[in-house]
Amino acid sequence: MDRRRFLQLSLTVPLAGAAGLLPVPSLAAGAKAANRPAPRPRMIVLDPGHGGIDPGAIGTRGTQEKEVTLDIAREVARLLSGRHRLGAALTRSDDRFLELQERVDRAREARADLFVSIHADSAPNREARGLSAYTLSEKSSDAFAASLAQRENAVDRLGGIDFKAQKRVVKDILLDLTARHTKHASLVARQSIVKGAGKDLRLLDNPMRAANFAVLKAPEIPSVLIETGFLSNKLDEEILRDPKARRTVARVLAREIASLVTRAPFA
């Protein structure tokens, strides 16, 4: 099933508070599907935040976000491709700096069905801790999300990127993102991942938020940014610096991502 079909079907998934049942495929539709070639596996592109000259957040014990995100993303990719039989790719597989637009471009080149950017930032409030998920919105859902987006969008300055040269491109992408298919599918992904992860992992208060994250601007790809925790919080840092705990986070994320992209009506 191609990405367009995926986005169309995502509109039938109810968000929190919506009523209704998921549609049941007809027998005729099933017969037609049997004559078609087997669809390619779903492709999930995982984006380990930061890297290279950009360490991201640094905890009080020296834990670097770029190392946490790469370790978790690698394990999620391994589980998706092995245990869950899905396609999985990384925007970076080692310690290198990537421009935000380059991350988006790599997801588009891979024909991603879902783009998940993985982070472990510093929060505006050091008491904030727990997993949370963010979708794109020109208007932030709250000051907390706005602060995170502002910090994330500033990383390109480390690589000497000319923002003025990108202004028109970003504007065009934002216009494309008004398409309700991509936006709705992103909201469905955010809700599904957070709801499932909350069964095993601590969640941030109000764990589903939105802000103008540059890395979520692939116009035709459902995109979500996951904060696995905050290195500005001592308890979260203690968890995220522990390899065993990171494996648990990765296992939960892989499980929920696989559940999202393979269950009806997405399958």
Rank of each mutant, 00 (worst) to 15 (best):
T182M: 00
L175I: 12
V188A: 00
L203D: 10
S192N: 02
I173R: 14
A185W: 01
H181P: 05
I193G: 03
L174E: 15
L187Y: 05
I193P: 01
L203Q: 08
G198M: 08
R190K: 05
L175S: 13
K195V: 10
V188C: 05
A185E: 07
R202K: 10
I193V: 14
D200P: 03
V194I: 02
T182Y: 02
L177V: 07
A189Y: 02
K183N: 13
D172T: 11
L204W: 03
A197N: 01
I173T: 03
L174M: 07
L177K: 11
I173D: 12
S192R: 04
K171F: 15
D172F: 10
V188T: 00
H181D: 14
A197S: 10
D205A: 09
L204P: 02
A185K: 04
A185M: 06
V194D: 05
H181Q: 14
A189M: 07
R202G: 10
K199N: 06
Q191C: 06
L203T: 01
R180E: 13
T178S: 11
D176R: 14
L174N: 15
S192G: 05
L177S: 10
L187P: 05
D205K: 08
T178V: 13
A179I: 07
I173L: 09
G196E: 09
L174A: 11
I173K: 13
R202E: 13
L203E: 07
K199Q: 12
D205S: 08
G198K: 05
V194G: 05
I193Y: 00
A197V: 11
T182L: 03
G196K: 06
K183Q: 11
D172Y: 09
K183L: 03
V188E: 01
R190V: 00
L187A: 11
A185L: 04
K195W: 04
H184F: 12
G196R: 04
L174K: 14
I173H: 12
